[in-house]
Amino acid sequence: MKKILTAVVMAACALTATSHAQPTDPKLEWATRLVALQQGPDLDSLVEQLAGSATQDLIGGWESRLESAPKAKQAKATEDLNAELAKFAADANKIIAGKVAQASKDALVPAYMERFTLDELKQLTAFFESPAVKKYKAATPELVNVFVKKLVETSKTDIQARAKQFNETAEKIVGPAPAVKPAKK
């Protein structure tokens, strides 16, 4: 009886060890690896945009209420709300950034697995691991700055002219700005 019991226990242990040692889905491994390679500054920008959007939603909801507050309280209320908005924005950024890994696992990994074969996942991974792509990703923030600087430079005159036109039209709609009293000496 003892021999049979020992054999049953050993068989159960072997079955448990075998079930833990089974290889995982290679597509899952490669899709997970590919998603991890794509994390970086672009994702950080997306997180900031999402947090900024949430902050703008709050601002939109409170802006009219702030304007309806007594004039004597508006300056202090604006200052206090701005401080709270800054805290909210920082917290929203942390919350969203903290959800990136789970969202990637739940959404991106299965999406890659559905859309790409194992061979394609391996090719994409090799592409993102290549030295040229790594160099490209490292240079991207600087390249974006070069582009934005040139874009601002080349559009500045036209934007200033359009702003002047807007101000002239707005003055006709709203009326001229109140005259500024000269400073006393």
Rank of each mutant, 00 (worst) to 15 (best):
L85H: 10
N93S: 14
A92D: 04
H20G: 04
A179E: 11
Y136G: 09
L143D: 05
K2A: 06
P23V: 10
M1T: 12
I59Q: 12
K184I: 06
P23R: 14
K73N: 08
S64Q: 15
K137Q: 15
D106S: 14
M10A: 14
A7P: 01
P141F: 08
D42G: 13
A92N: 06
L43E: 10
Q74T: 07
P70Y: 06
A86D: 11
K149A: 15
C13L: 15
Q102K: 15
A97E: 07
I159R: 09
A69H: 07
G98H: 10
Q56P: 00
D106L: 10
N167I: 10
L37D: 03
Q123P: 00
N167Q: 14
R115Y: 01
A7S: 12
P110V: 08
L46T: 12
A126P: 00
R162I: 05
K73C: 01
P110W: 05
A111F: 03
K3E: 06
V174D: 02
P182Q: 09
D42I: 11
T32R: 10
I96Y: 11
P26I: 05
L5Q: 05
P176W: 01
M10Q: 00
L81E: 02
P23I: 08
R115I: 02
K149F: 06
Q123N: 08
A170Q: 09
A177G: 01
G52K: 07
G52F: 03
L81Q: 11
D158C: 05
V133Q: 11
N167T: 12
A77P: 00
